[in-house]
């Protein structure tokens, strides 16, 4: 079972993603509510992939992405973005995010992106 770390400052979003993943046989190994926690948990848990929100307190998703990739250049990070954040998604992709999901999303979309990223 693939191990996923969910990062989002909104508990609701974490729940939404968790539900989508657990229904489809992924293991959610951890949740983090901000960028700093995300980095810590990534290093501690070494998940197969991370879903990473962009707008967060303490450390934004983009900064967290950079630090995660520095600790593990092969990290598979999927950005969770919202409409209107095109510029930031682009920055994330330049910085090494593997893909992205746009809120509001459907379960199938999350799974599809994850499967594809995990195959890379």
């Amino acid at each position: 079972m693939k191990r996923i770390l969910i990062v989002d400052d909104a508990a609701f979003m974490r729940l939404a993603i968790r539900k989508a993943l657990e229904k489809n046989n992924f293991e959610v190994v951890g949740e983090a509510a901000n960028g700093l926690e995300a980095v810590k948990k990534y290093i501690e848990l070494k998940p197969d992939a991370v879903t990473l929100d962009i707008t967060m307190e303490e450390m934004t998703g983009i900064d967290a992405l950079r630090v995660i990739l520095r600790s593990d250049p092969n990290a598979k990070v999927i950005m969770i973005s919202a409409m209107g954040q095109e510029a930031m998604v682009r920055e994330a992709l330049i910085n090494g995010a593997k893909s992205f999901i746009v809120k509001p999303f459907k379960d199938e979309q999350v799974i599809k992106v994850l499967n594809q990223v995990l195959e890379m």
Partner: peptide, 16 residues
């Protein structure tokens, strides 16, 4: 305020 509104926007859009 920006972040809070951003979060609410996302969650409420998910819930339709």
């Amino acid at each position: 305020i920006f972040r809070i509104m951003h979060t609410i926007k996302g969650s409420s859009a998910m819930m339709m």
